[in-house]
Design a protein around this nucleic acid. Structure first.
Lengths: 228, 228
DNA sequence: CTCAAGAGTTAGCATCGGCTAACATTTGAG
DNA sequence: CTCAAATGTTAGCCGATGCTAACTCTTGAG
């Protein structure tokens, strides 16, 4: 039944390479066994075994107690999964009227089932979009992604910075809050003040709203310098 | 990861109840272990075990060597899967430009992954269609399907019958052939002659084409009497 | 009516993904 | 520098799904 939609990886393998890749996307540290266990709601033992299997399949390199990294094959698979995920999110928003805070879980399921043909048709129908609804760049069909070199977390921004927003798609509640504040992906904001001790940043949105952010919220927002 | 999109059935269970239901849709005999094994490209042993598990889960009734039938629960699950499948097929054709001969396999994958929310949104976007691209009726969200009572296989049609076509979606090559002949789902045809010995039926299509059909092809087409 | 072919089942095995419990290694607080 | 906490691994178990081989039951050709 249901032929392998694309690669011959199990959906577990697909999820793992994507998670390993994603950890580093915005300048983050490599993942750990523990972090993956939390991410997938499973135990360290299970993750350790799964990583061993992925290593045997040539997707991952991992020496006990050392860094978990992707092989070139693993990285390509990860980028193709990221492509599927982001194109599906964009499609759900533009075609089925999903809110940008609702698409993540749906795309997470569909990315394992949709064929490459379907992903490419979606890409065509959408007119080859550069970004998904959260402002994240979409890799090409051969796994090339174009990341703004100097993107920086809002936590590290300086007052006066004038940038474009990119927002992590994984926390739906936070997305709803940002939405209410007029903090939308790819919309310009202006950094007003930065309080390192309190970990608080104040920004002015395109709508002129003054929004104060703290903690995780400042790390969920990436600032991409505007060309002008 | 990726939460259970809808029911708590495994995709194997979903495939089996759908296959068991489908065998009887157009007046066919109940399936057999062997037929299911062929359908799913697996062994009789595996099917026998799977059916035992489905029986234990209350989806199927089966005494060794007897008929395989669905319980009411199993039948509802089957109808909901058929609904997902047919709505997805319709969506792929109208929104992503798939040909009606290309949609079957894609829908077969997606029907396990799409959430109920997504299926219902598709239903809305399509304006609650009655039929999929092959002319098959689409069950409602509570599992009610409206089948023409007197539908009959082309093999049993009488000359002079004037009917609407419904074509099995599972054989892509045959669909391409039908397409070339102007034999399209829900288009009217007129039965010209019927040769029982040769198993051949000749029909006139809406375009005026004279098409001769034999063997499986005559069984793949169901004739639905036109009201007028 | 018989019996071999075909259909279905059972036994025994493998893999995957998951678990707990126990053990090993690394690291950072004091 | 030490040692306890945190992190990672291994061993041994389980259930789901799949296989092959061998068995049993049913049925139809002769």
């Amino acid at each position: 039944m249901s032929k392998p939609a694309k690669s011959d990886l199990s959906s577990t393998a697909e999820d793992y390479v994507k998670a390993i890749w994603s950890a580093r996307e915005w300048g983050g540290e490599p993942t750990s066994i523990t972090a993956l266990a939390e991410r997938f709601g499973t135990t360290r033992a299970t993750v350790s075994e799964t990583i061993k299997r992925l290593t045997a399949r040539g997707l991952v390199t991992h020496e006990p107690y050392k860094e978990i990294a992707l092989t070139p094959t693993g990285e390509l698979e990860a980028l193709l999964m990221v492509r599927r995920h982001r194109l599906l999110e964009t499609f759900l928003v533009t075609t089925l009227g999903y809110g940008w805070d609702e698409v993540h879980d749906e795309a997470e399921s569909l990315e394992h089932a949709a064929s490459t043909r379907m992903i490419d048709r979606i890409d065509d129908v959408l007119g080859h979009p550069d970004h998904d609804p959260h402002g994240d760049p979409i890799p090409s069909r051969d796994g090339v992604i174009r990341h703004p070199a100097s993107a920086v977390s809002l936590a590290e921004a300086a007052p006066g910075d004038y940038c474009i927003v990119r927002i992590s798609d994984s926390d739906s509640d936070r997305l709803v809050y940002f939405d209410e504040q007029g903090l939308l992906p790819r919309s310009p904001i202006n950094v007003q003040s930065q309080d390192d001790r309190a970990g608080t940043t104040t920004v002015v949105t395109a709508h002129g709203n003054l929004v104060a952010l703290a903690g995780d919220a400042t790390r969920a927002i990436m600032l991409v310098p505007t060309p002008h």
